[in-house]
Every structure is written in structure tokens, then in C-alpha cells.
Design a binder for these strands. Structure first.
Length: 264
DNA sequence: ATGGTCGTGGGACGA
């Protein structure tokens, strides 16, 4: 099963490019972040035409997440359990394929947290604590699960083009990296670095020619439970969709690219 | 040194 995550930075503005990628990549399941629309405005039919069931946890203007699946899903949850959140940043479902073992998939859009320090950074750290608590609960079930999304955390120096310049940023501050490591240390596997031979990025800012200079960040991740990690077969980053000079001229690229794993 | 980019919505704000 191919499980993908993509921060599309508005599904409405991005639709031609998103559909092109879906047609080519054919993920079995995909979680989307920053759809920037309410549930009713999500272009569900376009994805249903490609064979997907559509589940949305939307929000006007900001945030918003969705989970699309070509296999039956059960037990859809919106928002992190036991955490009051004004933002739509989490969606989860149990995927129940007919020809493979079940897999629980969570899609998340972790708060950016800038400027740091400050209330927005406090919110980021609180959100990470709630995610850790949820991961702990899921681990106790001994289910196979995968948590993918825009974590807005650069885990280490290989995830940023100029580490020294990012030390004070909410994405790279030591407290953010510690909180990320605490989640991993529960027993989860950061899947993509296990599979990628070289350092890689998943985001390039729109500003300052970041794409042309390859000034990227690694902030989109897939974290796997032990039972899911044992089934991990492949993974990748579709960086090509970030190129503004290729693909559909009807839309500009997102600043993030899809990241995916294959789980037996 | 400064401004440089997007998306939303129709002015700032978030990223």
C-alpha cells in the first residue's frame, strides 16, 4: 500500500497539479494539509472520479486537512483526541484493504510556531505534547499505524541548507527537535531517512529563489509504529512537482512536495 | 541594505 502526504497550500488553487500527481503517483491513501477550505468547498468529486473516498476536516482560509483512500476506511477521527484545538490540523482513519492487513493512518499539520519564543511557539509545543500523548495511546493498542504530514520540524542539520541561520527559528529550535525526538523515542520510526541515500528536502520557500538555489528544508515526515515499520518496503519524495517550469501551467506549485511510503 | 513570494479575500496575516 502506497501512503502519501502532501501540504498542497490550498487545494482550490492547486487542483490541476494535485490531480496530475494523483493520476501519476496513484497513492492508495493520501493525507493533505493546508487545504484552506471548509468541508463543503473541498473538490471531492474530482478525487472520487479517480476512485477515492474523501474525508475532510476543513477550515476557512487557514489550515484544514483531508484523508483520501482507495480502500475502505473505518473509524474516521477529526482533531487530536483529548486536545481542544481551534485549528483543523489532524485527521485519522483505519484503512481496511481487502487484500492487505489493516493500517491506521493519521495526517497532521503541525503548527509553524513562529515567531519564537511567544504564544504561537507555546501552541506548537503544546500541540506536539498532545501528539506525543496520542502516539503513546496508539502504541498501546499494538496496531500498525503511520503518522504523516507537515511536522514543521527540521529534525537535524541535514534537514536545512544553512543550519546556523535557522537556530532561532521555530522549525529548528532545540525545543522543537527535542519534542520531535521524544515522539520518536516512544518507539516510532522516521521512515524516509531510512530509505533515502542522500540528504533530501521536502519544502522550498517561494521567496529568494529557494528552489533554484536548492535552499530547502526537510519538514514533511512519515512516522511508523513498529508493526508498520516491519512492513516498510519503499519510500520517496516527489521533488519534481516543486519545479514551476514543468507541470500544469494552470496552477503554480505548492511550496511542499509529496512524501510517500509503501507498506506491505 | 532592502525586498524579494504565495493564498485568501478584498486588508492584513500566516507561512
Amino acid at each position: 500500500m502506497k501512503i502519501a502526504s502532501w501540504n498542497v497550500n490550498s487545494v482550490g488553487a492547486r487542483l490541476p497539479r494535485v490531480l496530475d500527481w494523483f493520476s501519476e503517483a496513484r497513492p492508495d491513501v493520501c493525507v493533505l494539509q493546508e487545504i484552506k477550505c471548509v468541508d463543503e468547498k473541498f473538490p471531492a468529486e474530482a478525487f472520487e472520479d479517480l476512485g477515492y473516498d474523501v474525508h475532510v476536516h476543513g477550515q476557512k482560509t487557514y489550515n484544514g486537512v483531508a484523508l483520501l483512500s482507495r480502500h475502505p476506511v473505518e473509524d474516521v477521527r477529526r482533531g487530536l483526541p483529548e486536545y481542544e484545538d481551534e485549528h483543523s490540523r489532524y485527521i485519522e482513519a483505519l484503512i481496511v484493504p481487502e487484500d492487505a492487513a489493516p493500517l491506521r493512518v493519521g495526517g497532521l499539520y503541525l503548527p509553524n510556531g513562529n515567531p519564537a519564543p511567544g504564544p504561537k511557539y507555546d501552541y506548537k509545543l503544546a500541540w506536539m505534547e498532545a501528539l506525543e500523548a496520542h502516539a503513546k495511546r496508539l502504541l498501546a493498542t499494538e496496531e500498525a499505524f503511520a503518522l504523516g504530514g507537515d511536522y514543521n520540524v527540521i529534525p537535524n542539520e541535514s534537514g536545512v541548507y544553512d543550519p546556523s541561520r535557522w537556530l532561532g527559528d521555530a522549525l529548528f529550535r532545540i525545543e522543537s527537535r527535542q519534542a520531535y525526538r521524544r515522539i520518536l523515542n516512544l518507539g516510532l520510526t522516521d521512515a524516509l531517512p531510512q530509505l533515502m541515500g542522500e540528504p533530501y528536502y521536502t519544502f522550498w520557500d517561494y521567496q529568494r529563489g529557494a528552489w533554484d538555489k536548492n535552499n530547502g528544508l526537510r519538514i514533511d515526515h512519515w512516522l511508523l509504529s513498529p508493526q508498520a515499520a516491519d512492513r516498510l518496503e519503499a519510500g520517496g519524495v516527489d521533488a519534481g512537482v516543486r519545479d514551476p517550469n514543468t507541470g500544469s501551467p494552470e496552477a503554480k506549485p505548492s511550496d511542499h512536495v509529496p512524501v510517500w511510503v509503501e507498506i506491505a
